[in-house]
Computed example of a mutant assay.
Amino acid sequence: MKRSVLSLLAFLILVGVKAHTTVSRDKDYAAYLFVYFTGNTGAEESVRYAISNNGYSYYALNGNEPVLDSKVISSTGGVRDPHILRGADGKTFYMVLTDMVCANGWDSNRAMVLLKSTDLINWKHSVVNIQKRYKGQEDLKRVWAPQTIFDKKAGKYMIYWSIQYGAGADVIYYAYANKDFTDLEGEPKPLFLPANGKSCIDGDIIYKDGVFHLFYKTEGHGNGIKKATTRSLTSGKWTEQEDYKQQTKEAVEGAGVFKMINSNKYILMYDVYMKGKYQFTESTDLDHFKVIDNEVKMNFHPRHGTVIPITRKELKALTDKWGKPEGL
């Protein structure tokens, strides 16, 4: 009996510690980091940083100049569509990029860039060229917008991106990264293809209440953002929603979803690329969104990027490196 009571007490203490750790980590977050690129020419196809104290007002670091040299980290000399992820350990960061210079043509790229960091400033990088890495890739036309999510079930980091072969539809594929985050393991496999068999790109997955929510762009047939859900990333069983999630009639791409710190609110942002604008929308259920553009301010013009929360210590390190922006 005594042993059972002690075991129960130990269990309750452990649960309490875990719960406290989770809450404490969220409470440690003090700001937001926006990672983005800015356009289709020269140095615009580079990684840039902006920071925010509240998730609505963003200020570019380094005078809106690149924080990484595209010519060093890529095979083409340019990078686009940066996606950043805080690792499961809470202190390692993973970034993936489209390795591409659009001046070479929209179907010119075959590779992605993988980066890993422990301080958001110094990054180890590698290039994975899908056409060179795998056999049977002669008809590969493009490798677009990679992103990363930690697959808890597999205990690995999943990289997912869109591929087009020949005249076929763009399909979102996935593969797991190796332990060092320098290469892919195994053959890429399809992750998601809408029931209509048409193209989808720019996938962005967020996990909420046991469900994975995939936001994606309907490329070439509407150019808007739709959503599909699943409880298992690799099951192939997705529930699609028919409605578009963007709150504009303009063409959009590059959906990015993030949760507000210590809040039940989620932000869905996207690139209104034909108008040179970015739109922010807000939701508590990831189904219904309202425009909050009047609350958002940026002293730069981003293209397809992502936002993550950062700690006060991480914020200080970034501003120590690139200076504190005026207005922050």
Rank of each mutant, 00 (worst) to 15 (best):
M1N: 06
L8Y: 03
F11V: 14
V15F: 14
A19W: 10
D28K: 10
L33E: 08
L33Q: 12
L33D: 10
T41D: 10
V47C: 11
R48E: 00
Y56E: 09
Y59S: 04
Y59F: 14
E65N: 12
V79I: 15
I84P: 03
A88S: 12
V113W: 02
H125S: 15
G136T: 06
D139A: 15
L140I: 14
R142L: 14
P146H: 10
I149Y: 02
G155Q: 09
K156C: 00
S162P: 11
Q164S: 05
A167V: 11
D170P: 00
D170T: 01
A175M: 07
Y176F: 15
E185N: 05
P190E: 13
L193A: 15
P194W: 12
I201D: 02
D202M: 12
H221S: 08
S235H: 00
K237P: 01
Q246H: 07
Q246F: 07
Q247F: 01
T248Y: 05
E253W: 10
A255F: 03
V257F: 13
N262F: 01
I267S: 01
I267G: 04
V272K: 11
G276H: 14
T284Q: 13
V296F: 03
K297P: 00
G305N: 10
T319F: 00
G323R: 00
L328W: 09
